[in-house]
């Protein structure tokens, strides 16, 4: 299928996004039941039928989200599919992190399975043998053997493993950028560069906070061809110059300030907002480009996160202003 067909289909999907008003209306729901009732009037209706508990709602939202991703992959040409698959492997990485964390916590296979994102063909690694591994070391060995992820040989810290998985993911994504249409490569590179910058900044801050050893950080930082220089980051980490890191880039200041103040959840929201702003700024000039597909994928993830955060904040009976603060709009 051609790229034009994919873009046309995406233009067909975009009006189905929930508007800001709809999200605010959902955020004002008093109970999860009211939330489900309101959301049932939209495209989510069928999947949400019969859901009552928070876990059920979360699972249904994840299912709808993954199905929407699959629908995009189905209509993509073989070449773009390769790039899209490389991009969508982020959900496989999330699953792997989940599995490794729970293996470290000695959770059973059933317990882990209950929490996984049903990625299916969106991932490349077979999760079954990893799930059946009797220990964390055995699970790591299986992942290493796949040669998709170059995990460190000696693992002292789960956090290093998690960052290492993301590093391998971003490196693979950068390699696959040649599979993206030529006219979009530069913008795609910039977009991935933004994500890599966030990855690197997080690694730096965690090293400065001594959550990661300096020797590990040196290996975990990614050389970003379109972002903050690897050498500069490394020198700042060595000097533990948090203040200089904050001054490094105006674009990331909001994210960094929130991270440094310890409000990592706010930093995460800020990260998505920065990514969304970058995509939204190019929405009109890239209206009939592959870039628009990528924007759709990010918007899909943001909508999924927004709905999930509304459901959870209703569950915790957070005030409406706190719920809206959690929204990425």
């Amino acid at each position: 299928m051609s790229l034009t067909y994919l873009i046309c289909r995406i233009h067909g999907y975009v009006p189905k996004f929930l508007t800001r008003e709809m999200l605010l209306d959902l955020a004002s729901a008093r109970t999860l039941r009211e939330f489900v009732e309101k959301l049932s009037r939209t495209d989510y209706g069928q999947k949400l039928e019969g859901t009552r508990t928070l876990r059920e709602i979360e699972n249904s939202l994840t299912e709808v989200f993954v199905n929407k991703l699959r629908a995009v992959l189905k209509v993509a040409s073989e070449r773009t599919q390769t790039f899209l698959k490389a991009y969508l492997r982020r959900y496989e990485v999330q699953n792997l992190i989940l599995v490794l964390r729970m293996k470290a916590g000695k959770a059973s296979k059933e317990e882990i399975e209950r929490l996984l994102i049903p990625v299916g063909e969106l991932g490349e690694l077979k999760l079954e043998p990893i799930l059946e591994a009797k220990s964390l070391e055995q699970a790591l060995e299986i992942i290493r053997r796949s040669k998709r992820y170059l995990l460190p040989k000696k693992v002292e810290n789960i956090l290093v493993l998690e960052i290492s998985l993301w590093k391998d993911y971003y490196i693979a994504l950068l390699k696959n950028i040649s599979k993206a249409p030529l006219q979009d490569r530069k913008d795609m590179k910039k977009f991935i560069g933004l994500e890599i910058d966030f990855h690197n900044l997080k690694t730096c801050l965690l090293t400065m906070d001594e959550a990661i050893k300096l020797s590990d950080a040196e290996k975990l930082l990614i050389r970003n061809p379109v972002g903050i220089s690897h050498r500069r980051l490394l020198s700042l980490v060595k000097e533990r110059a948090k203040d200089l890191l904050l001054e490094l880039s105006h674009n990331y200041r909001g994210y960094l300030e929130k991270f440094v103040s310890g409000e990592l959840w706010l930093a995460e929201i800020e990260r998505y907002k920065i990514l969304k702003n970058y995509m939204d700024a190019l929405r009109i000039p890239k209206f009939i480009n592959f870039f628009y597909v990528m924007k759709y994928l990010l918007d899909l993830e943001i909508e999924y996160r927004n709905l999930r955060s509304i459901a959870i904040s209703i569950y915790h009976e957070l005030p409406v202003d706190a719920r809206t603060r959690l929204l990425i709009t």
Binding site: L54, R55, E58, Q94, L98, L115, L116, I117, L264, W265, L266, E268, I269, R305, R308, S309, I310, I312, S313, H316, L318, A322, R323, L326
Partner: peptide, 11 residues
């Protein structure tokens, strides 16, 4: 807890 839970999800 509510903020972290809502931002990152139950998983």
């Amino acid at each position: 807890l509510a903020m972290v839970h809502a931002t990152y999800g139950s998983q």
